[in-house]
Design a protein around this nucleic acid. Structure first.
Lengths: 151, 151
DNA sequence: CCTAATGTAACAATATTAGTTACATGAAAC
DNA sequence: GTTTCATGTAACTAATATTGTTACATTAGG
């Protein structure tokens, strides 16, 4: 697995929920689609639940569903809900603290990153889960039928 | 240590080389300033040497020096020389390969990242090592004397 | 009260990154 | 030419971050 698979994992799950609006999907079902563990799904979606993006219900016929239309869920909302960023973290540069250069590099880099962060946030705000779903070109071998039986 | 300290490490080293243009600095001296191991310094600067940004000489009075003025070394040159990026890598999303959604998420994200990469590259191109050095506000407690005896 | 779901803590496994040791190579000093 | 001081690099170890797993508590419905 690669770094920050959490992000694509969450997006993947959200698109699934969007495509199946009628009934809640369980963590186990999603985990099968995402080829991971139900607990990992809960952890990721739990953060989105705290941000009011998805809702979860326990017990019979419980599971996850979107709390608002996919077109109203921006990628930026997802990312900030998960405390993630597209940019690397470059805080806390190693180096002798008595050396002024360290702090200068950190300052310059920090400003650059903050600037870039704002730039990307604005762009991510303009992309929604619906945008991703609409671009979904079904796999010619396994077209979607609403139910996802993993291969 | 934080992720991609390699980047700030390299920048830190380059500013040191810029501030000391008269003689070469050894990996050991730099390692002391950067609070790391000489081999780590060699690994990082080695990539910059391959890119023609710095030069190294062996033997007595050997070490590292800049091969061109600091104002002509852009952050983008440094980053691409090291094969690094300011953006996270999101390649190879986990998920069932038979599920079209996986590929769609990857496609959309990939395009977004590529776009952002180009954007940031252009911005990094406009910042040089000299820009960082000029912004260096010396530590009031330990002003620079040219030689860096670590604390 | 049994089943099916989430919630979460604690732990194990894995992957990534940084640090270290060891030794070969090359250049200047003596 | 031999010694010394430097880089070059491979191999290994250690530390860190991430992901996966197990176990069990909680809640809802039949």
């Amino acid at each position: 697995m690669k770094r920050s698979s959490r992000l694509s994992l969450a997006l993947h799950a959200l698109v699934h929920l969007h495509k199946q609006p009628d009934e809640a999907m369980t963590s186990t079902t999603l985990a099968t689609c995402l080829m991971t563990n139900p607990v990992v799904v809960r952890r990721a979606l739990g953060e989105l639940r705290d941000a009011g993006i998805v809702g979860s219900t326990k017990g019979h016929d419980g599971g996850w569903r979107l709390l608002r239309p996919a077109k109203d869920i921006s990628l930026h909302a997802v990312y900030s809900a998960m405390g993630e960023s597209l940019l690397i973290r470059t805080e806390s540069d190693p180096g002798d603290i008595a050396c002024g250069i360290v702090r200068t590099v950190n300052t310059v880099m920090g400003e650059f990153i903050a600037d870039a962060e704002a730039l990307l946030a604005a762009r991510l705000e303009r992309v929604s889960i619906a945008d991703i779903a609409n671009q979904a070109t079904p796999n010619p071998l396994h077209p979607h039928h609403g139910v996802h039986h993993h291969g």
